[in-house]
Design a binder for these strands. Structure first.
Lengths: 217, 217
DNA sequence: CACGGTAGACTTACGCTGTAAGTCGCGTCA
DNA sequence: TGACGCGACTTACAGCGTAAGTCTACCGTG
């Protein structure tokens, strides 16, 4: 009788959940809310994803799919830099993804493809298997940690930093925490400062300190 | 008439919430559950903490209080290493704390003391204000990122790694993801491997690459 | 073409959650 | 002694994830 509804699918469900998460954060991804966005009831989603957890699995894999794959070039340093920059951008687009990325017991195809390409770029650059593992872990730790901090800071830009830092500094016992005060007033609250710029400093330091093994295995 | 109950206090509430979080994870910290552990009803907690969010504030500050403060010695490298090791231990004791540490709009006294001491140790080691800021951000990014990965991996020890990796590898299309397979079979699944050991590699690399400014300001 | 069986899409209903709003009882001061 | 005020506590509610139950639409068979 009524017009036939566009049927649900895993892709449609995951896409709606991601859009919702981008707008309202991970906690905004309720089965009801996702369903409402698709014009169905909550329980219909369970036919396409394995509960909330399965939905998160799909969302994580979709984030990995957004990260540019490094080519297996000899210039591993550039490949790693670009991969890190692309990952940071994806994680900033989808703040809810940090912390979910490594927790999947059943990684999706995009996740596996991503990890394989990163390792391939390091191997092509002359890293041994073991050293490629070290480098992958180190770079990802820095990447995830930086984005985690960047996203969880209670401000987004210089103006927000000024406001929050000002509030905190005002409430401080005078003279307590001298180094913190020094950093704030003489550095972080100066006009040109942007916390986001710290990313390049650390990434460059790490990439310059990393080296392929002298005798690749 | 009845025996007088030990009155609640912010400290007792926060301690109970931390114990609960350690046992059942952050999501186990429900107002009801915390209250039940203290023998009261949920709403009583609201007299001592500003809702669930205020409770989390107190829990985060308590975690900072558990981290050993670096002494303002000239040996900044040792101080930073020990601070990182102590922080990692605290974050592993309280897995729920990662991701909450930098998000507090109103940092508690232990948090402020901690940050001030870290900056103080770097300044005493010859770092300029700006370089101390860079170093703090870099080390903490690595620290938080490593612990985040370490904790979110879906296994805890070598046996668990073998099981999960085995399951994943079995489900893989043969020949797809060659570098991932290589890393697993030739490195990570070998007897002596433990992901936790990667921490030292990255920390040492970072600390060796960091240097005080040549002309401290 | 008719029809019975069944897989899969969908909804209802339940035991949870965080907390706003309301109630109680004790300590204090006239 | 009495009653007032305020902090400690509970009740009640809207909204959560999902187990269990319902219903629809299709397909193979005669």
């Amino acid at each position: 009788m009524g017009p036939k509804r566009e049927p649900l699918s895993r892709e449609r469900v995951v896409a709606a959940a991601m859009a919702l998460a981008d707008e309202k954060g991970e906690s905004g991804v309720t089965m009801r809310a996702v369903a409402a966005r698709l014009g169905v009831e909550a329980m219909s989603l369970y036919n396409h994803v394995a509960g909330r957890e399965g939905l998160l699995n799909g969302m994580v894999d979709a984030v990995f799919a957004e990260i540019e794959l490094p080519a297996p070039t000899a210039d591993w340093k550039t490949a790693m830099r670009e991969r890190a920059v692309s990952s940071r951008a994806a994680l900033r687009r989808h703040p809810w993804a940090v912390g979910l990325m490594d927790s999947r017991r059943q990684p999706g195809p995009a996740t596996l493809r991503h990890h394989d390409a990163v390792l391939g770029a390091l191997r092509a650059g002359g890293f041994s298997v073991a050293m490629a593992g070290h480098a992958f872990s180190l770079i990802d730790s820095y990447l995830y940690g930086f984005v985690l901090q960047e996203l969880s800071l209670p401000f987004n830009d210089h103006a927000g930093l000024e406001e929050v830092a000002g509030d905190i500094l005002n409430d401080l016992p005078a003279g307590a925490y001298p180094h913190l005060t020094e950093l704030a007033t003489e550095h972080a609250l100066k006009p040109g400062y942007d916390y986001a710029d710290e990313f390049e400093f650390g990434l460059t330091l790490i990439l310059d300190a990393l080296q392929p093994d002298e005798r690749p295995q």
